[in-house]
Design a binder for these strands. Structure first.
Lengths: 220, 220
DNA sequence: GACGAAAGCAAGTGACTACTTGCATGCAAG
DNA sequence: CTTGCATGCAAGTAGTCACTTGCTTTCGTC
């Protein structure tokens, strides 16, 4: 990581912006966080908007590499790993994303270029689910329409997004740990699109083919 | 709706805040939007923070009434109606929620009292799902653990939330119409927790118990 | 050692901010 | 008619904002 004031300003600008938003990211605060003089900011970038624009655009250009195989082997494990990575990446950029969303009306460009990364992830997940169908994993008891599968993909991404964005703000809505939640999302998703999932260990299953309401009921 | 300047200020404050956030909601803008003099604002509320605080708190106190029956009859229809109402309510407050989330660090109180409404909805949905299990609707081929059901409830709420918040910002992530998306969420959710759902009309089903990948595959 | 680029420092500019003060106006109740 | 009360209007205060200017310091290169 280079140490010239230009990079320190870019880094500090992204950090201050994530905490205080566009209006709250004053040139004074950014320069102070970068440990450089406020004038240096203007000498390098000309204006606060130019600095914030390039800083946020550069940060949003970080696209997480795919970790979904082209040919599925174990859908639950592979989707769980993907959702873990996606959740971690979204959690890291949580504050930044929040500010981008609330500033999208007055500063649309950075928000737009930041959404490209999410869209790429969406496309990859979609490709993977298409591969699931192509390789005959969707052999559930009832057929699932392609449109419904597409909606389910959006649902999974939305759930992981909402988890990463809201868990710290309203913990009561997330009774399960992050990992248990992601596992539940993935398993619900897979069952929802007709891909059978394994029975987790340590559960009194009874006879899986008959009514199992009594077997899975536990004191709340 | 009363027309005294007090209510007009409260209404205008909420509107301006939803569009510009805490810092961007200047007293000048609010007074202008309310059609009253800026001094009247201070005479009524004393300070900008007091006005914004009461305005946002009052708006966030709007709790949508429940429309989930205590005893389930048709889970898909009932959950679809609930998700439609929840989606509509969240969409209406979209901009406000965005600002609340990004301002939560510097002004936690309104964000906190706004999350109470969502939590109430979460609790009601959870109660309904408990009723689903109690009345024997979860008779799918495999048992679903209570923890997983809880995670699935979080997943459904998260998906509806993300849909309402992000659809206009990144339409490419939502290939289906809002209604078709909600239907897919609900059906995926129900199948995910072991509640069988009907087969939509107009789909070549083939034999539902055998592999149906060929039957549901369509050209993309 | 001389030179030039890059940085810091101090000060200032004009615009905007929340908020206050003093006074004139309109209006409703006594 | 008069007494309050609520509001509008004009002006002002102190602070912050983005941004500029002029000058000095530092430092690597020739």
């Amino acid at each position: 990581m280079p140490d010239d004031p230009r990079h320190r300003l870019l880094h500090a600008a992204a950090e201050v912006y994530a905490q205080h938003g566009w209006r709250g990211a004053t040139t004074r605060r950014i320069a102070e966080a970068a440990g450089v003089n406020e004038v240096t900011l203007f000498r390098h970038f000309g204006s606060k908007d130019a600095l914030l624009g390039t800083a946020v655009a550069e940060l949003a250009r970080v696209t997480e590499e795919t970790n979904l195989p082209a040919v599925p082997v174990c859908p639950e494990a592979e989707l769980l790993e993907w959702s873990r990575a996606h959740h971690a990446a979204t959690s890291t950029m949580r504050d930044l994303v929040r500010q981008l969303m609330s500033d999208a009306r007055e500063h649309p460009e950075p928000a737009h270029c930041a959404s490209d990364g999410v869209l790429a992830g969406f496309a990859r997940l979609r490709q993977y689910v298409l591969a699931l169908r192509r390789h005959g994993f969707m052999n559930g008891p009832a057929p699932v329409t392609p449109a419904e599968v597409r909606g389910a993909v959006t649902m999974l991404m939305g759930a992981v997004f909402a988890d990463a964005m809201n868990r710290e703000l309203m913990p009561a809505m997330f009774p399960l740990s992050p990992d248990a939640s992601l596992r539940a999302y993935v398993r619900t998703f897979l069952r929802g699109i007709g891909v059978p999932v394994g029975i987790p260990a340590g559960i009194p299953t009874g006879m899986p083919s008959e009514r199992t309401t009594a077997a899975v009921r536990t004191p709340e």
